[in-house]
């Protein structure tokens, strides 16, 4: 493994598999009564969040604490960033606190790369702009593997706002590396016009869901509405929302995923969200295990001679 995890595009299939295998062991740790291991005691992790996030930050924080690191959160509203400090100065300050890891979320693409180049700490991308969200893709792959044993050859559909979704981008890169067959379903305004080879695009949800093993729903961001991406949530749900009837078009044992937080009644009906085929809550637990694995595996590279 490299020093940092900034993108799926920059890691190999072997690295992805090592992370997923290691995450299995951490998944076991999370099943114990004592869910904490002393592995990274003495290490300091800074969660540097320039964008509001509850889920991802909580998941990282739990992963960090369960590995016995010292955690501190540096988030925008309380930081000096609002006072006009440059990103580089913020990073240097954090470096001076003695951070071994920086977990970074930022609204601008490429910021994790920037920090990785300017810091000795291991940098983990927790979402940058519309670029990538690698740990989400890894936890999704982990969840799929747990449910379906092997990812290679699976028919996987990503549904919704692909073009603005870092979750979708990282998932596409990750699942392609692992040999899945991908389909993108959504309105043409939300599907990128440049795509890697071999990906099928469907504007018709029913057609796209036919024969899929995994349905990954993406969150619709309300601020997209009224900007011409789609006319209304009502129309969106009618055309691209997932409900029981549509779920029946997919394979019998198809699983439904969602990175959360869900908009019930907009991209996913409550019945589907809560049905046995939904693995949405497993994704949440797996997220901790995968992030523990990433922290563990990156931790070894820093002091290497």
């Amino acid at each position: 493994m490299q020093k940092d995890l900034v993108s799926i595009s920059e890691i190999s299939k072997d690295d992805i598999e090592l992370i997923l295998d290691t995450a299995s062991s951490f998944r076991d740790v999370l099943r114990r009564d004592i869910k904490k291991v002393p592995t990274l005691r003495g290490k300091t992790v800074v969660n540097l969040f320039f964008e509001p996030s509850t889920r991802t930050r909580t998941s990282f924080e739990l992963a960090e604490k369960r590995l016995s690191t010292d955690v501190f959160n540096f988030s925008v509203p309380t930081s000096s960033v609002v006072k006009g400090e440059s990103l580089l100065d913020t990073v240097r300050t954090i470096q001076s606190y003695g951070a071994d890891y920086i977990v970074i979320r930022h609204s601008a693409s490429g910021v994790p790369h920037f920090i990785a180049q300017n810091s000795a700490a291991s940098v983990i991308n927790a979402g940058d702009g519309i670029n990538e969200h690698p740990t989400q893709a890894l936890l999704d792959a982990f969840t799929i593997r747990e449910q379906k044993k092997e990812i290679k050859g699976l028919e996987i559909a990503l549904v919704g706002d692909i073009v603005h979704s870092r979750v979708a981008r990282s998932n596409i890169l990750c699942l392609l590396k692992l040999g899945a067959n991908l389909r993108l379903i959504g309105p043409p305004t939300l599907i990128p016009n440049t795509l890697p080879k071999g990906i099928k695009v469907f504007y018709d949800m029913d057609e796209g869901l036919n024969g899929v093993d995994v349905i990954m729903m993406l969150r619709i961001q309300m601020e997209r509405m009224g900007k011409g991406f789609f006319p209304s949530t009502r129309e969106y749900f009618k055309l691209w929302g997932i409900n029981q009837e549509r779920l029946a078009i997919a394979c019998k044992d198809a699983i439904v995923m969602h990175p959360g937080p869900m908009n019930r009644g907009i991209e996913i009906s409550s019945e589907v969200a809560d049905c046995p085929q939904s693995v949405i809550l497993e994704q949440v637990t797996n997220g901790i295990a995968v992030r523990m694995a990433v922290l563990y595996l990156l931790g070894g590279s820093k002091n290497a001679e």
Binding site: S109, G110, G129, I130, N131, E132, R166, T194
Partner: peptide
């Protein structure tokens, strides 16, 4: 806008 912007996730 093109393959590189798509690769880098830049608008």
């Amino acid at each position: 806008e093109g393959t590189v912007s798509s690769m880098l996730g830049l608008k």
